[in-house]
């Protein structure tokens, strides 16, 4: 064993609820008891963070609520919302489920493509959509894909439930609207219309086990040449996953031919100011984001 282990390991209790209600009750109780509690799903973010945390910064946890035994969270279902087809994913749905679920493969192949680009198989079998969303990393891949699909999350707590559109879920770098005692029960996405232009393109540090330098998801629908819907999610270009609302506003209602590269680029310039970090440069990210958006929109 390498000489590293999270501090306070021995005092962390784990509970393994079987239902969402049970999980919420445990969370609420911990909150009332002022115990430091955390949800745990695939652990692909939590356990890495805890393990790599320098010992002097490690914050001991009193309670971990393991969600991997909650079957409700792994369900994939369909529903009809105002005549449109939606898929609903339990928060515990893994990337591997996305890659192997027939309905998903048929309805939204983009999610399969995205899931295939996440880490590698061992990450895909564990990592969950809710974990991806709750971690709120700007480099997350699941989030932009779900955002472009008009994702809406359903947050459940002991006291009740609320829904929040994904593009309003993130407040700032790694800050979300998720309150103590709440968990992500579901993510609802709208199935793009047949014939929609659906894009997924991840530019990572390599072809697997890669953190995105830029990733773009896009759903573009048209009716007789006019763009009726242009939704995006883009990773790693801002403090949070960005919906590129300016580009959406620019494109929706126009024909493809009426769009030109310079105008679209200018809209992107107004929205994002990517930064330099150990993985890439701001200039490169901006360039790539523009190129990918243009590939999605080009006539």
């Amino acid at each position: 064993m390498s000489a590293h282990a999270p501090a306070g390991l021995a005092r962390t209790e784990m509970v393994c609820p079987k239902t969402i209600a049970e999980a919420c009750a445990v969370l609420a109780q911990a909150h009332r008891d002022k115990r430091a509690a955390s949800l745990l799903a695939g652990g692909t973010d939590v356990i890495v963070d805890r393990h790599l945390m320098p010992i002097e910064k490690a914050r001991p946890l009193d309670l971990v609520v393991d969600l991997t035994g909650v079957d409700e969270l792994t369900a994939i279902s369909e529903r009809d919302v105002a005549g449109e087809r939606h898929l609903v994913f339990g928060g515990g749905v893994t990337y591997w489920q996305l890659r192997t679920d027939r309905r998903v493969l048929a309805a939204i192949p983009m999610l399969d493509a995205m899931a295939k680009d996440v880490g590698a198989v061992q990450i895909q079998t564990r990592g969950t959509l809710a974990g991806n969303i709750a971690t709120a990393s700007p480099a997350a891949d699941g989030v932009p894909a779900l955002m472009a699909l008009d994702g809406v999350v359903k947050l459940v707590s002991e006291g009740g439930a609320r829904t929040v559109p994904l593009d309003q879920f993130f407040l700032a770098y790694r800050k979300t609207v998720l309150a103590a005692g709440e968990l992500i029960a579901e993510i609802d996405v709208r199935v793009p219309l047949p014939g929609a232009r659906v894009t997924w393109r991840k530019v990572g540090t390599r072809l697997a086990q890669a953190i995105s330098k830029v990733a773009l998801a896009g759903v573009i629908e048209e009716e007789r040449g006019t763009i009726t819907r242009a939704r995006f999610g883009v990773a790693s270009v801002a403090a949070v996953t960005h919906p590129l609302g300016g580009v959406r506003a620019l494109a929706e209602g126009k024909t493809f031919k009426a769009l030109d590269r310079a105008t679209v680029d200018a809209a992107i310039d107004l929205e994002i100011k990517p930064i330099d970090d150990v993985r890439s440069t701001g200039a490169y990210r901006l360039h790539v984001a523009k190129a990918l958006v243009w590939r999605a929109l080009a006539p």
Partner: peptide, 16 residues
């Protein structure tokens, strides 16, 4: 060294 991790010092995978 700012990237002393396997995540950030990137060697090729089987896909690369």
């Amino acid at each position: 060294i700012l990237n002393a991790r396997m995540t950030n010092y990137v060697i090729p995978t089987s896909k690369d």
